[in-house]
Design a protein around this nucleic acid. Structure first.
Length: 452
DNA sequence: TCTGGGGTCCTAGGACCC
DNA sequence: TCTGGGGTCCTAGGACCC
């Protein structure tokens, strides 16, 4: 916790709905609900006019319609939201170089990095007031609620206290008194499940939480959560504002209006999602090793199946083939309501580096000096693990490697050096096109095989 | 026909290695 | 030959956030 209130949290009020009302004057002053409008949609954001009728985020659209039939129900226009968000984030970065976006409509700003002379309560209040006016100006009239405090925890809670269009600065030294009477649910990370566990232990307020010893908290909610809660209960939070955060995973999922049973349809959908994920990976210049499919069945039970490749990929065919194969490991005969495909284990080396290697090899092989791929290279074929489900494993005499590209009469293999990641790329002549392996196939080194 | 989509982080068990 | 601990990686599931 800092000695001055230098952490600012901004949260744009009813953001998606506010953008819609800004862009469509006929919606101003009226209930607006943005979210899924299909049979299984949920509310992403309700305007304050709709909240009067009890419409809330995460509520099913069906229920929202029952509560507020006369609202305008809109699907999201995310490009517009992103554009507006970008303007706000740029504004914040003009205030301080240290800005941590949490989502399109929320960010922390580190005022200690802003070069301000006056970090008193009055000083940061003036800064926050000016910021709110600037937000309205760059967004075309949107409101943001602002909290300023000595920590992320308290700044975030403060921004929520006077919504909409709020401004709360918490004077240093008053944090614990502010939190004590509040429900434990105000602490980020305490959701319904944790709140229920705490309730059963007799803990309802932050004050109650303060009275629980650390080891008991760990027993009730686990190691990481318990130690963190022990500190949060005391407003003891020194988490820094972090500007850059690495992407850890990329995924696409979809919920269908009716439960799907047809295998061919499911396979087609999963392949399409795999294609979208791979496209997004390439666009972001990322590649990843672990492919996961997510399957939510008719009864809302959710299953995931994942498989990790020896090397990262952003290749549509590799992701699609693996995803389809993982789908096959789950019994979907009762009907599927949601399907998803994700890639994680993202690599710190990017596509550009691979292309550099690949193109070098292509040029090196252009003079028809390619070595033939030995006939026995394709002797053994396995269609299951350990390498990866759905991938053909082929054996070569040239060490362990992955087929990186294959074309007519030609196959390119990127070899691996055991344990150290990507190795050299080599291209071989493929004399029998019928045997041509596909990208993602693995060439295994027979000398590694204990059975010879 | 209650329950989105895109993420992050944690836990727990097993494999494997030293 | 047996016992054992620690670390890392992988997988599955779950809680949580906006």
């Amino acid at each position: 916790m800092r000695s001055d209130p230098t952490i600012l949290h901004v949260d744009l009020d009813a953001f998606f709905a506010a953008v819609e009302q800004r862009d469509k004057p006929s919606l101003r002053g009226k209930p607006v609900v943005v979210g899924g409008v299909g049979g299984r949609g949920v509310v992403a954001t309700a305007s304050y006019e709709a909240r009067v009728f009890g419409v809330r985020s995460a509520m099913s659209t069906r229920e929202a319609r029952a509560r507020c039939p006369h609202a305008a129900y809109l699907t999201g226009r995310f490009d517009a939201y992103r554009q507006t968000s970008r303007r706000v984030m740029e504004l914040l970065r003009g205030l301080s170089p240290l800005v941590e976006p949490l989502s399109l409509d929320e960010a922390f700003v580190d005022l200690a990095a802003a070069g301000l002379d006056d970090l008193s309560v009055a000083g940061v209040t003036a800064v926050a007031e000016r910021l709110k006016a600037d937000v309205a100006e760059v967004t075309g009239g949107l409101c943001g609620s602002v909290g300023v405090a000595t920590s992320k925890l308290v700044a975030k809670i403060a921004s929520d206290l006077d919504k909409p269009d709020g401004l709360v600065v918490v004077p240093p030294g008053t944090e614990r008194d502010l939190l004590r009477p509040m429900s434990v649910g105000v602490i980020p990370g305490v959701g319904p499940a944790t709140a229920e566990r705490l309730r059963r232990a007799g803990v309802h307020t932050v004050q109650d939480l303060e009275d629980v010893p650390a080891d008991e908290l760990v027993r009730v909610v686990g190691q990481a959560h318990g130690t963190s809660l022990y500190r949060m209960a005391r407003a003891d939070d020194d988490r820094p504002v972090v500007a850059e955060r690495e992407t850890k995973s990329v995924s696409v999922e979809g919920t269908y209006d009716t439960d799907l049973v047809d295998r061919r349809l499911l396979e087609g959908l999963v392949e399409r999602q795999a294609t979208q994920v791979a496209e997004r990976l390439r666009k972001a210049r990322l590649s990843g090793r672990t492919v996961t499919v997510k399957i939510r069945l008719h009864d809302f039970t959710t299953h995931t199946r994942s498989s990790t490749l020896p090397a990262p990929t952003d290749d549509t065919r590799v992701v699609a083939r693996l995803a389809r194969s993982l789908l096959g490991e789950v019994d979907t005969s009762g009907g599927v309501r949601l399907l998803g495909v994700g890639v994680s284990g993202l690599a710190d080396w990017i596509q550009e580096d691979l292309f550099a290697d690949y193109e070098d090899t292509e040029q090196a092989g252009a003079g028809s000096t390619l070595e033939p791929l030995p006939a026995d290279a394709l002797a053994a074929v396995t269609r299951s693990r350990p390498w990866a489900p759905g991938m053909d494993v082929v054996h070569a005499e040239h060490g362990a490697g992955w087929v990186w590209g294959s074309g007519v009469g030609r196959v390119t293999v990127r070899f691996e050096t055991a344990g150290t990641g990507p190795g050299p790329v080599r291209t071989f002549r493929m004399d029998d096109p019928a045997l041509a392996p596909a990208a993602g196939d693995r060439f295994d080194d027979p000398e590694d095989d204990p059975e010879g």
